[in-house]
């Protein structure tokens, strides 16, 4: 691990200002992803800004009947929160499907949104990776791609976003609240939060330099039946090959987002409008334009079947 300096700012605005002063700074919250990457020198921050002491760890009602989740709320606490279990089950289920109990006790809401890809070439510092070293090339294209994206990738990168929580946040239309280095605040809808890789896969979100997530806000509850179905290589503690987050209403309408298939949670309004017509119609529309490799083309079938299983369950 490379050496770094360290500070504990007193306020969120101070944290953002500090990050803007040092271009190679990183915020550290749970650290479960960042420290892992620092050990293998994929991440080499010169300065760590510890945001654990900031007063950002509360879950409280939001003005419009929604729920404001502090950036530092731990994944385990969020999944166990009474309101989340009752009104946003898709989120609780997604959180519980991710990582291990030890990691969920540390990992935070904001950190989960910002976790880096699990593409094996991103982790292998001996191989080119445009996300790790911009312009160095993509070893995944033409390499081992079973876990990687089938849609949304580019000639520069076909990595997937690894989060389960983010897929549920996308289906719930969560909003990300932030503070910028000049102390101004803004709200970014989750639909506009992530960037597709294009030719700059190292830039993964629309956050400005130094901008700090302070909370994630859920709109008022949607009702309906909530599902998070995750298909993976082990029964527990593995990243998704394909996951389906869905909220299905009694009339068969609803919302659906896919995880494990793209560089960001994958959702499309015109595709989910076809939910009453069955899974195949939805996934055909949602994954139209997919460019799978021979190694990961199975994800297209898997997505259709996983959604089909969800819709069958929704009818019972």
């Amino acid at each position: 691990m490379r050496a770094f300096t360290y500070e504990r700012p007193r306020t969120d605005a101070e944290a953002a200002a500090s990050a803007a002063r040092e271009p190679r700074a990183r915020f550290i919250a749970g650290g479960t992803n960042l420290l892992d990457l620092m050990k293998i020198e994929v991440e080499t921050p010169s300065h760590l800004i510890d945001v654990n002491g900031l007063d950002l760890d509360r879950i409280e009602p939001a003005g419009d009947g929604g729920l404001r989740i502090g950036a530092m709320v731990r994944n385990a606490d969020l999944a166990a929160h009474e309101t989340v279990r009752r009104d946003y089950e898709v989120l609780a289920r997604a959180l519980l499907a991710g990582a291990s109990a030890q990691i969920r006790n540390r990992a935070t809401t904001a950190g989960n949104l910002l976790q880096r890809t699990r593409c094996p070439y991103f982790y292998d510092t001996n191989q080119p990776c445009n996300k790790r070293v911009p312009g160095s090339g993509c070893s995944a294209i033409g390499g081992v791609t079973r876990q990687l994206a089938v849609i949304g990738g580019s000639q520069a990168c076909i990595a997937t976003h690894p989060s389960d929580m983010a897929v549920a946040m996308r289906v719930l239309d969560a909003k990300v609240e932030t503070v910028r280095p000049d102390a101004t605040r803004r709200v970014i809808p989750i639909a506009d939060f992530y960037r597709l890789p294009g030719d700059t896969p190292h830039i993964e979100t629309h956050l400005d330099a130094g901008e700090l997530i302070t909370a994630v806000v859920l709109p008022k509850p949607l009702g309906g039946k909530h599902f998070y179905r995750k298909v993976r290589d082990r029964a527990s503690y593995a990243f998704a090959l394909v996951s389906v987050a869905a909220v299905v209403q009694d009339d068969g309408a609803g919302r659906v987002a896919l995880g494990g298939v793209a560089p960001q949670p994958w959702r499309d309004a015109s595709a989910e409008a076809q939910l009453p017509d069955g899974a195949a119609r939805v996934t055909d529309a949602l994954l139209a334009g997919a460019a799978p490799t021979p190694d990961n083309a199975f994800k297209l079938t898997l997505a259709r079947r996983a959604l089909g299983a969800v819709l069958t369950q929704a009818r019972t």
Binding site: G31, L35, D36, K39, A76, Q102, N105
Partner: peptide
């Protein structure tokens, strides 16, 4: 493993189990 995958380093932090390899002492 020193990467949070095996759980051999599990300790209790304020009563909650965590991977002690995936956090800095200074925190």
């Amino acid at each position: 493993c020193d990467h949070g995958q095996c759980g051999a380093c599990t300790v209790l932090l304020d009563g909650k189990r965590i991977n002690s390899c995936l956090t800095l002492a200074v925190m």
